[in-house]
């Protein structure tokens, strides 16, 4: 007699940041969460569209929640049973630029993280930057630090400490360029051997090196000059596009608001 393997329903709970939701059928929603304990999860919130009693405004993007869900591992979507709001950031919606900047961060996490892969450090990074969005001091250039640290946490860290061709350490007297395909800086001696190089000044490289070393809460103290920010933005956007094969959609909306 063949035995049917029993799949146990696990009732789990984790802190999470709501990445996005979309309607599913008549009354349900599919929710994408980045959880502290289980990484990115897609869940079904039954009846969330029709009744707001169980979830309230807890499923709005950016909300920091405690999510209670039932999960059959590797069997379809987990089922979100209820959630408790730990922190909500409705003020973000008062400024469309902040919503777009914030959504860009959510989209990066949603796109770059595999489902069910635990990354508590990404959770803390995301939560820190989402809470930064409601502060007066938030500047769009802070997104560059989010990108850099997220790439590093997920194994896409650009090499900014040494030439990616000859491995010689960064020296301030040299003029480096950045190779998207090689994933790092190229020293003057090796620049003839690599095609499609992007300009990257030493000031920007050193700022990025500092941003990689600093404690995350101290990152907002770093300041770009407008030229440094522009070349850093271009470099990181090209780097991202190379790895995910397209530009994030929220970036296109950001350009509309420029």
């Amino acid at each position: 007699m063949s035995s049917v393997p029993t799949v146990l329903m696990r009732h789990l709970c984790s802190q999470a940041v709501v990445l996005r939701t979309f309607d599913f059928g008549e009354s349900d929603k599919i929710v994408s969460l980045f959880t502290e304990e289980f990484g990115r999860l897609r869940l079904i919130a039954k009846g969330a569209k029709r009744s707001r009693k169980r979830f309230g405004s807890g499923l709005e993007p950016f909300t920091h929640i405690e999510a209670f869900f039932a999960d059959r591992e590797y069997r379809g979507l987990a089922r979100l049973e209820r959630c408790h709001i730990i922190a909500a950031f409705p003020q973000i919606a008062d400024d469309v630029r902040r919503v777009v900047c914030g959504t860009y961060m959510l989209e990066l996490v949603d796109t770059l993280t595999p489902e069910r892969e635990r990354h508590p450090e990404v959770f803390l990074l995301l939560l820190f930057f989402v809470s930064l969005l409601i502060h007066e001091a938030f500047r769009e250039e802070m997104l560059r630090f989010f990108e850099l640290r997220l790439f590093a946490m997920l194994g896409y860290q650009p090499q900014l400490m040494r030439c990616v061709i000859c491995r010689a350490a960064f020296q301030v007297q040299h003029h480096y360029k950045f190779s998207v395909k090689r994933g790092g800086i190229v020293c003057p001696a090796c620049q003839d051997r690599v095609a499609e190089l992007l300009p990257l000044s030493n000031g920007t490289i050193r700022l990025f090196q500092q941003a990689m070393r600093m404690d995350i809460p101290k990152l907002p103290r770093l300041v770009f000059s407008p030229a440094e920010h522009e070349e850093g933005r271009l470099m990181l956007t090209k780097f991202l596009e190379y790895h995910i094969g397209r530009l994030p959609r929220s970036l296109m909306v950001m350009e509309q608001l420029a």
């Binding site: 996005r20 959504t103 860009y104 959510l106 959609r249 296109m252 909306v253 509309q256």
Partner: peptide, 11 residues
């Protein structure tokens, strides 16, 4: 409405 995740902006 403006939905950056879906590429919907003011335009």
């Amino acid at each position: 409405c403006i939905m950056p995740f879906d590429g919907i902006g003011p335009e």
